[in-house]
């Protein structure tokens, strides 16, 4: 490397926590047992720092898989809080336990070809939504800030698409269901509603269907075979010369000069 100086070398420690010499430590309680951990860590990394090697309760480590739902209280405060262990920073006096699994109800046999109206289908698969008492606990519990009670209300009202969209960020951590007095597994209802929305309540893409049909007819196989046989030089020329669709072109408006390969 040309101008590399010591100062330009970044720190490289993978995902292990190596606290800087001046790090400050705080005490947290993991399932009732106190541990000293560096502040600013997430719960997940703090638990690893304490010596846990996860089997459950850890997946993506990036706030999207829903494996690491956690309940906690701060000592001296009555409020029960929730968060994702991989996204929540530890605080002094935190008392925590993970909920790596919560028994839930998923209605079997989702039929996406049925003629039953979507609202009826949801009502039949998950009649328990009508027992929602509107307590709002689920919404307060959701670590993704989703208005869970709100989407359940949409489903009750028969607005399946509206509820599906409202629930879109759900990572299926199960925390809402763990607190629901009406025993609803909100995230499974939402999952079903989203699939119904995608498959039945949104127009299908005709352009995609047409192209898929062309693929099935074998149209592209000879063209691709030709590319597979071509010399590297010729391929490079084609690559360099290919036209680029302008960034701001409207869908379906711009067409390339050479249309023989479409």
């Amino acid at each position: 490397m040309t101008k590399s100086t010591q100062d330009n070398k970044p720190i490289m420690v993978g995902d292990r926590t190596i606290p800087p010499p001046d790090a400050r430590f705080i005490t947290i309680s993991i399932m009732g047992q106190p541990y000293e951990v560096p502040e600013t860590l997430t719960i997940l990394k703090a638990m690893e720092y304490a010596g846990y090697q996860f089997k459950r309760g850890c997946g993506c480590r990036g706030g999207i898989c829903g494996a690491c739902g956690t309940f906690y209280r701060i000592e001296g405060d009555h409020t029960l809080r929730t968060g994702l262990a991989c996204q929540t920073v530890v605080e002094p006096g935190m008392i925590l336990a993970q909920v790596p699994f919560f028994p839930s109800n998923r209605a079997p046999d989702l039929d996406l070809d049925t003629k039953t109206p979507a609202d009826e289908q949801i009502a039949t698969l998950y009649p328990e939504i009508f027992r929602c008492v509107g307590c709002g606990t689920c919404t307060r519990t959701c670590p993704m800030d989703i208005d869970v009670m709100g989407y359940i209300a949409y489903f009750k009202r028969g607005d399946i698409k509206g509820g599906a969209e409202k629930s879109f960020d759900c990572i299926m951590c199960g925390l809402c269901a763990s607190r629901c007095p009406a025993n609803i597994s909100q995230f499974n209802v939402a999952m079903t509603a989203r699939r119904i929305t995608g498959a039945r309540l949104t127009p299908r893409s005709e352009v995609t269907a047409a192209r898929a049909e062309q693929v099935r007819s074998g149209r592209y196989e000879p063209m691709l075979a030709e590319l597979c046989e071509m010399s590297a030089e010729d391929l490079k020329t084609l690559y360099v010369e290919r036209e680029r669709e302008p960034d701001l072109a409207k869908p379906g408006e711009w067409m390339p000069k050479d249309q023989t390969k479409l």
């Binding site: 299908r204 352009v207 995609t208 898929a212 062309q214």
Partner: peptide
């Protein structure tokens, strides 16, 4: 294109234009 169509048929909520175009 077959994969995109398959995912759509399984109910994936793609970002779409109002007429269903991806």
């Amino acid at each position: 294109p077959l994969i995109i169509e398959w995912l759509e048929s399984l109910g994936m909520m793609f970002d779409k234009h109002p007429d269903g175009r991806m």
